[in-house]
Nucleic acid binder design. Sequence first.
DNA 1: CTAGGATTTGGACTCTGTCTAACTATCGGA
DNA 2: TCCGATAGTTAGACAGAGTCCAAATCCTAG
Lengths: 137, 137
Amino acid sequence: MIQYNRDNMAELLRAHDINPTHQRIEIAYALFSRQEHLSADQVMAIVNGRHAETSKATVYNTLNLFLEKGLIREVIVDPSKVFYDPNTGPHHHLYEVDSGRLTDIKADDIRIEGLPDLPQGVETVGIDLIVRVKRTA
Amino acid sequence: MIQYNRDNMAELLRAHDINPTHQRIEIAYALFSRQEHLSADQVMAIVNGRHAETSKATVYNTLNLFLEKGLIREVIVDPSKVFYDPNTGPHHHLYEVDSGRLTDIKADDIRIEGLPDLPQGVETVGIDLIVRVKRTA
DNA sequence: CTAGGATTTGGACTCTGTCTAACTATCGGA
DNA sequence: TCCGATAGTTAGACAGAGTCCAAATCCTAG
C-alpha cells in the first residue's frame, strides 16, 4: 500500500498530463489519501478545512479535468450529487440509500453474463453495477 | 400488447392505491402509453402540450407518489436529471452518453454471479446495471 | 524584469427539485 | 341541497449543485 503525499500527487498529475498546481495537488491528495468516494462539496470542505484556499469554481474545474484525463471516475448513484472515485480499476458499488454511504465491491469474483450485442456504431464506455441496500428495520 | 387509455390508467392507479385525479391520469398516460424513459420536464412538456394544465409541483408530487407506490421506477444515470421508467419488471439499462438516450436491456439472459455477501443488518433494495456507450467516431 | 499563456477566483447565473400557504375539488352526511 | 372535512393542486419563493464569465493572479521563458 503506497503512502500518498503531495510529491506523489504531483508525479501522478504529471503522468496524466496535468499541470500540478497547488490547488490540483490538494484536491488529488484529498481523494487519493482517503481512497473514498467524495462529492464536490466534500472535497471543498476538506481542501478548505483550515483556511479558505480553493474556490468552488476551481474544485469543479479540477474534478472535471481529472475525469477527462482518466485520473478519477464519476459515480452516479444519488440524484442530488455526483461522487468522485479515485479508484479507476474495474469494480462495482454498494450504496446505502438511507445513509448515503457508498463503498466499493471488488470486481474480481463478479461475472456478468448474457449481455446482448450492442447496437451498431456504438462502443462501451463503462459498465456500472450498483447494489442498492437499506438498513433492515 | 395492451392499448393504454385513460380508463386503463384510472384502474391502474386504483390498483396501486392511488386516487386517480385528472392530473395523475394524464401523467400516468404520458409514461405508459409511450413506454419510454422520461425526465420530469419531459413529462411536464407532454402533459402541457396543448394548454398549460398541470403545474411543476404536481408533476413532481405525482412522480414521487408513483415511485412510492411502486408504479414506476427511478433511473439514475445522468447527473443532471432523473429518468422515470414505467417498466418495473427486472431489466437493465443502456445509456448513450452523447445523446442522452436511455433504453432497456431485457434481464432474461443476464446473470450476475459472484456478488459478495451483504454487510450485516442490510437488505437489497435493487440492483442497477447500466451499460454506458458512446457513438464510435 | 517582463510579456503571455495557464490557472484561479468571486459572483452571477441556470437548472432541477422542494416547500409553503392559499386555493379548489370532491365526497359523505345532515 | 348545503356544509364541512379532507385530499389534491397551484404559483411562486426557495435551496443546492453545478456552470459561466470577466477580471485578477500565477508561472515561466526569454
